[in-house]
Design a protein around this nucleic acid. Structure first.
Length: 265
DNA sequence: ATTGTGGCCTGCCCGC
DNA sequence: TGCGGGCAGGCCACAA
């Protein structure tokens, strides 16, 4: 479930530990490191350093780690949460329950644990779809969705033929939107998810950019990606909350998609 | 280069 | 009750 909004909640929670000393790093299983096959050792060597800062780009949460007062020696540790990953601090998460995740909650699913001044920070990820990476390449991510401008959006769309939804999900083009946020943004903007992007007018692009920024802000304040106006209509035979048309279920960009054919055109 | 597909992983839910 | 298939809100490697 975690999309930009949830990752930002994680970052804010983690921010309380900035300045602390990393006592230990525990990665039980090499399958969680990226790129695949990266040994655990370089991660373990972060013990003894300090957590200097946190940052986020899209769904990537970054920990800036190193000795105080020596920016040259700073190392970036990137955390990705996949679909089922949660950040736990001392056993509890900023988000209590993941939609669509298992009702169970096993400490055995802790794929990565950092101890900062005695506080346990863990990624609990049942399916191991998340990962950790040293010095992640930030250049591979597009502009941040929560502040995306019409100009940036236009750049992402130009020269492409993909379905609109597929582009919005592509982290290289726009960073941070996941399946739920995209469906809500398109529902609010009145745009069909399967529209080829080269078909959008300048006016529609502008409207969509504003809608993305507003929707992210709105749902952040409400409490998560699952609090959209269209969320309850992600069901068979559900009615569109705007115009009472029947919601339609399709696969677009390889993802399960709910939309309203009446007002999304 | 761009685009679509399948795989990674695991658990749950449904129908037989 | 047991079993197989399909599905899940992310991301990557790969083929066309």
């Amino acid at each position: 479930m975690p999309e930009l909004i949830e990752i930002e909640y994680y970052r804010e929670a983690l921010d309380a530990l900035v300045g602390g000393m990393i006592d230990s790093v525990d990665i039980p299983d090499e399958r969680f490191t990226r790129p695949k096959g990266t040994p655990i050792e370089p991660f373990a060597q972060l013990a003894g350093e300090r957590l200097l800062k946190t940052s986020r780009l899209g769904k990537l949460l970054c920990l800036h780690i190193g000795p105080v007062g020596d920016p040259e020696a700073e190392v970036l540790l990137g955390l990705r949460f996949g679909m089922t990953g949660r950040l736990l601090i001392n056993g509890s998460g900023p988000i209590d329950k993941l939609e669509y995740a298992s009702g169970r909650d096993e400490p055995a699913w802790d794929r990565f644990t950092l101890t900062v001044d005695g506080n346990r920070v863990s990624i609990r990820d049942q399916r191991r779809l998340g990962s950790i990476e040293l010095e992640p390449d930030l250049e591979r991510l597009g502009p941040e969705a929560s502040t995306v401008t019409a100009e940036q959006l236009a750049v992402a769309l130009t020269g492409r033929t993909k379905a609109l939804k597929a582009v919005l999900l592509d982290q290289q083009l726009i960073a941070g939107l996941g399946n739920l946020l995209v469906d809500e943004c398109l529902w609010r903007a009145g745009l069909a998810p399967s529209r080829p992007v080269n078909d959008l007018s300048a006016h529609e692009i502008e409207r969509l950019a504003v809608m993305i920024v507003d929707t992210v802000a709105d749902l952040s304040a409400r409490g998560g990606s699952h609090t959209g106006d269209s969320f309850d209509a992600r069901n068979e035979h559900a009615q569109c909350p705007r115009d009472c048309g029947e919601m339609r279920h399709d696969t677009v960009g390889g993802r399960s998609t709910w939309w309203c054919p009446v007002h999304q055109v």
